[in-house]
Amino acid sequence: MLEIKNLHASVEGEDEQILKGVNLTINKGEIHAIMGPNGSGKSTLAKVVSGHPEYEVTEGEILFEGEDVTELDADERAHLGMFLAFQYPIEVPGITNRTLLRESYNTIARENDREELDPLEFDDYLKERLEVIDMKDEFLERSINTGFSGGEKKKNEVFQMAVLNPKLAFMDETDSGLDIDALKIVSDGINKIAGPENAIVLITHYQRLLNYITPDYVHVMMNGKIVKSAGKELALELEDQGYEQLEKEFSVNGEAQ
């Protein structure tokens, strides 16, 4: 589904590379976790894959279902079924969640020659999807993320994902800042959404999320590259030993290569 080949990227207009040759293949039906210390490039990877205009791909390519999407705008990637759950969801005052979601849903449907839903049909659909993340429908009338608590913002990201039903979702630290109850609700939601037809990439600092969601693969990112990939046991290993051991391993050759 997603193939990232030798991806290099920098902040537009700056020389310093943040991604220094990422290779990653994701198939449908899979859940991946990307872990790594602060500043290793995890969030940048998520943004670059989603088409954030601040970054420039200097080398390599991103293929989604065989199509090169490296140069596509963020909305075009969203139309193809790519989704990003934001680490820091953005506030948009004056526009309700409901309005945003109906616009989003129908735009994506239109771009894919699927039928759009009228307001009544859409309402029914929203109600059904609210259950995924255990949210009240008054949530729909509130302005996008405006005045939401940290936990509500994260839940809202998962809710949007439940509504838009993307093929591929990058979830950037969706677990950080959640208390244990919220973490459970959010993980349950993600588990309900995960299926044989889609793929999910969890970016996280903590192993605790993986107690609730079982990844098929765990990758460790350091200094702009994926330095190690393995099964779910890698997360436990990291929890145990920290990143230090790995850092040492990879500094043998100087900078990670």
Binding site: H52, R77, V92, S104, I108
Partner: peptide
């Protein structure tokens, strides 16, 4: 803000228009 809305599939123009209308 614009990137957030575009990531949800909304075009740049519509995103701007939404932000301003909300304001």
């Amino acid at each position: 803000q614009i990137f957030y809305l575009m990531q949800r599939g909304i075009s740049e123009q519509d995103a701007i228009s939404m932000i301003i209308n909300g304001f």
